[in-house]
């Protein structure tokens, strides 16, 4: 953990200094006033409400969207990953094709497409489900991430020695049973670092939901800029950069540490 801790300290301190230096370079003598303005807008940017009373917009919305999208993508991605290692070509070929299509599509285009593809509301089981911008954003982000998770799943399963498959087979397990009871429990350690990287990528991708009209941090930032003046735009975007960095950098460090541990154990 020592090397990672050192990197964490260097990265956090360094990035804070660089961003602060940029702020001073752009604003010069005005920096103090700009910082005050930023402090006054912090609750709005973080929680979408001016006094932290509700957590339904701003950075909190990004976190919520990323968690939901990750959960959906984890389920769908595992299913797609199982399809990709299926023995039947009829299942495998479409799964691999779907994974490649999803992985090569730009997130922004998928988000836009979901915006128009998903209906405003659907009626199922006697109740009406309405698709709010947030739900469309979650589905739009979950789709490309599904492909990433399927790839991580396949990679993890393939990292487990084939002898495990054969011995479980000779003990009478069926394919899905082997996967669930023997292979996946061993593969999970290879998958965890990659899953964390995928999550960090997804979180970075939540900055795009601004186009769906969800009340995420970039929409709040745009509103703040519109009300406080374009003069503050640089400072606000610097602040948003800093927030994303503070969230994603620890994940990156933890991922590196886990990878190191998996490598040492082997």
């Amino acid at each position: 953990m020592n090397a990672e801790l050192k990197l964490f300290a260097l990265g956090t301190a360094g990035v804070t200094l660089v961003l602060a230096a940029l702020l001073v370079t752009v604003y010069g003598a005005e920096t103090g006033r700009v910082l005050q303005a930023l402090a006054a807008r912090t609750p709005l940017l973080l929680s979408g409400s001016p006094d932290f009373s509700r957590f339904e917009g701003g950075f909190a919305a990004n976190i919520v969207i990323s968690i939901w999208a990750m959960m959906i993508a984890a389920v769908a991605g595992t299913a797609l990953g199982i399809g990709m290692i299926s023995q039947s070509l009829l299942v495998r070929a479409p799964s691999v094709l779907l994974m490649n299509v999803l992985r090569n599509s730009p997130w922004l285009v998928v988000l836009y497409a979901m915006l128009y593809l998903l209906p405003f509301e659907i009626e199922a089981f006697g109740t009406i489900f309405s698709f709010s911008p947030v739900i469309k954003a979650i589905i739009g982000l979950a789709l490309p991430v599904t492909a990433n998770i399927a790839e991580v799943f396949r990679g993890g399963v393939e990292a487990v020695p084939t002898g495990q498959w054969e011995s479980a087979r000779s003990l009478g397990y069926r394919r899905l049973q082997i996967l669930r009871r023997v292979v996946v429990p061993q593969a999970i350690q290879f998958m965890t670092p990659n899953l964390m990287t995928t999550y960090a990528m997804l979180f970075i991708g939540t900055s795009l939901v601004v186009v769906t009209g969800a009340n995420d941090i970039l929409s709040v930032a745009r509103t703040v800029i519109a009300s406080d003046g374009a003069h503050y735009a640089t400072a606000i975007y610097l602040y948003v950069l800093f927030l994303f960095f503070l969230f994603c950098f620890p994940i990156a460090i933890l991922t590196r540490w886990l990878e190191q541990r998996v490598r040492v154990r082997q």
Partner: peptide
């Protein structure tokens, strides 16, 4: 170099773009 890499890898390219554009 390490600080540069970590800064640009761990922040959204969209925010970087807006930041560059406005700064």
């Amino acid at each position: 170099v390490t600080i540069f890499v970590e800064l640009f890898r761990n922040t959204p390219p969209l925010v970087q773009l807006f930041f560059l554009y406005f700064m």
